[in-house]
Amino acid sequence: MPWPGAAGSLTEREDRPFWVAVLEERFPDGTVRAVGHVFGAEPTNPELYEFLLRHGTALLRRVDRAAAAGDAPRVDLGGRRPRIAGRSGN
């Protein structure tokens, strides 16, 4: 179900030995919900695009069912910076 005013982002990060894509959705009331997908090797941008075309709707449905970030345990990234999908570098 779409939420008026909601904004989302997809972040890809390395969580050795895997790569994880995290879809975050931020709602106007300040609520944040997120879901992730674990890849094996680092996916290329075309692979991420194809993944989103095939599975994007299912990810959005998972976000709708996910607990709000304040209600879920925090995850330690171990000081690693995530790589934003579609951006080079990092």
Rank of each mutant, 00 (worst) to 15 (best):
G36Q: 10
A6P: 14
L23Y: 11
T57G: 03
V38L: 13
E25V: 14
L10N: 07
E12W: 06
A41D: 12
N45Q: 15
N45S: 13
R81Y: 07
A21E: 08
A21D: 08
A69Y: 08
G86W: 02
Y49H: 06
P2M: 07
L60I: 05
A67Y: 08
W3S: 15
W19E: 00
L48D: 03
V32P: 05
P46T: 06
F18V: 13
D76C: 02
V22H: 03
P82K: 10
L53Y: 07
V22N: 00
L59R: 04
D64T: 09
F18Q: 13
R87V: 03
E25K: 13
G40N: 08
R87N: 04
A41G: 14
P4I: 02
P43W: 02
F27R: 15
V75L: 13
A85D: 05
I84H: 10
A21C: 11
R65T: 10
L52F: 05
E47T: 04
H55A: 03
P73N: 09
G89M: 03
V38S: 05
P82V: 13
R33M: 07
H37K: 01
V20L: 06
L77Q: 08
D71G: 06
G5K: 10
E14C: 05
V22D: 10
G36L: 06
A21T: 05
G8H: 00
L77Y: 01
V22G: 01
T44P: 03
R80S: 01
R62M: 12
P73L: 05
L52N: 05
T44R: 08
G40S: 09
F51I: 06
G89F: 02
L59A: 01
F39W: 13
R16M: 00
A67F: 08
R16A: 14
V75I: 10
F27K: 09
A41R: 14
A67K: 11
A58S: 11
T57V: 14
R81M: 10
M1A: 14
S9Y: 06
A7S: 14
G5D: 11
V32E: 00
R87I: 00
D71L: 11
I84T: 13
P82S: 12
I84P: 00
E47A: 15
R81D: 04
G40A: 11
H37L: 03
R61E: 12
W19G: 02
V20P: 00
D71K: 09
D15I: 09
R33K: 14
L77K: 02
L10I: 14
R33D: 04
G78M: 05
R16I: 02
A41F: 04
V35D: 12
F39P: 15
P82F: 06
R65I: 08
W19I: 00
G56A: 06
R87H: 09
G8N: 04
T11L: 15
A58E: 15
L53I: 08
R54H: 12
L53W: 09
E47I: 02
L52K: 12
G5L: 12
W3E: 15
G30H: 09
D29M: 03
P2S: 10
A68Y: 02
G89P: 12
A72G: 04
P4L: 04
T57A: 11
D29W: 07
V63A: 00
P73S: 06
L10Y: 15
R80H: 06
R16C: 02
P4N: 04
P73C: 05
T44M: 07
